[in-house]
Design a protein around this nucleic acid. Structure first.
Lengths: 203, 203
DNA sequence: CCCGTTTTGTTCTCCCGTTCACAAACTCCT
DNA sequence: AGGAGTTTGTGAACGGGAGAACAAAACGGG
């Protein structure tokens, strides 16, 4: 988030910023921001603030965005299409090296300049391109078996869009994005807003 | 999450489950699950467990999924396409009532059975269908102005896929989903895994 | 009818992230 | 050079979520 905020400031022509400004751009408390940055080192100057470009490089280096990360996407449905075309990945150091789908009918398609290949090619692709990050955009029922194959092939980080809890061995990281749960959370708050107009907030 | 886990259990034919089982399905600790459920009321039976169908209904009612929530999606690029076609929304009580885009070239398209309309129609659609939830899938630069228009039109919950911090008045809820930040987090852990093979975990 | 077993609901404790507050450090102006 | 004004970095206080642990309650068997 800080990296993104700094990029925004840099594009706006700002060369130096205070923790207050940067915190506002990132939407957090300024004390938290300073403490977070302090874990990386002392990159600010008291009385002045942070050098935008310098801090940007330091954060990028720390979180590994200076490298190029190959990524495979499995499941080229609607969501897989969108992810394959998402420009935000490429601009942040992620390179989609392959699109895989179990459905042979999709194997002749070309999406985002890559042809959709068979899921059977997973192992060879992972080995060849040294892929360590996989994205699962399949239906929920297929997600666990895809994850198992990914792990067996050597992938150690998985971004899961399927609405399922994945079980993976230690040493493998999984992050989950559930689109409809986000909407459900909003709906819950909506219901409270409209449903209890006369009741004060109890918690 | 619990609702989803319960649905899975119900489809598997389970009629009763203990907090331990349900917690395993949802991927959380059983004590946490019991505490969470206790906020809704006492829907379990000691010595027996929870009735799957009954608990499912109670949770659905509490979080407002029994209702039908109209939703508008603004920004019909790759992501907007995917969201419009995402079946998980419909099955969870969300109904996409309109797709809007500022680009007139997209206004003749038909996506997911709905024709893409002008962003100028926002106010009339929101008023007509009593829409309270909006989804922003536009580029980052447009997101804030779209949010402002949404709020002015009467929308009080926003799901934001654009990589920007939105500022909205009190009483409006915003949830943010940032796809590339999720990948960055994975990349960070990857870097630590491979970069510090001989160093023990320090924190 | 009573006791052992199972499982919930809840309390207590611990731990971690967030925020406040302030000393240290730097700049600028006189 | 010195003091006023800023702004960082960090120690201390606060708050809240998560897990362990236990009492209360329901069931079943003798």
């Amino acid at each position: 988030m800080y990296l993104r905020a700094l990029t925004g400031l840099a594009e706006g022509g700002t060369t130096t910023c205070s923790s207050e400004e940067l915190a506002a751009s990132a939407g957090v408390n300024s004390a938290k921001l300073r403490k977070d940055l302090s874990y990386l080192g002392s990159y600010g100057t008291r009385g002045v603030g942070y050098d935008v470009e310098y801090l940007r490089y330091q954060i990028a280096r720390e979180i590994g965005v200076t490298q190029d990360w190959p990524v495979v996407i499995v499941g080229i449905g609607n969501l897989g299409h969108a992810l394959a075309n998402y420009s935000g990945f490429r601009s942040r150091g992620f390179r989609v090296v392959a699109l895989l789908d179990a459905d042979p009918d999709r194997h002749d398609e070309v999406v985002a300049g890559l042809d959709v290949r068979s899921f059977e090619d997973l192992e060879s692709i992972v080995a060849e391109d040294a892929v360590s990050i996989g994205v699962i955009a399949t239906p929920a029922v297929a997600a666990q078996s895809v994850a198992d194959r990914m792990v067996a092939a050597g992938i150690t980080s998985i971004l899961n869009f399927a609405p399922t809890v994945l079980t993976v061995p230690d040493g493998v990281d999984v992050r989950k994005v559930d689109l409809s749960i986000e909407l459900q959370i909003l709906a819950y708050h909506e219901q409270r807003k409209s449903g209890l107009p006369t009741t004060e907030v109890t918690a």
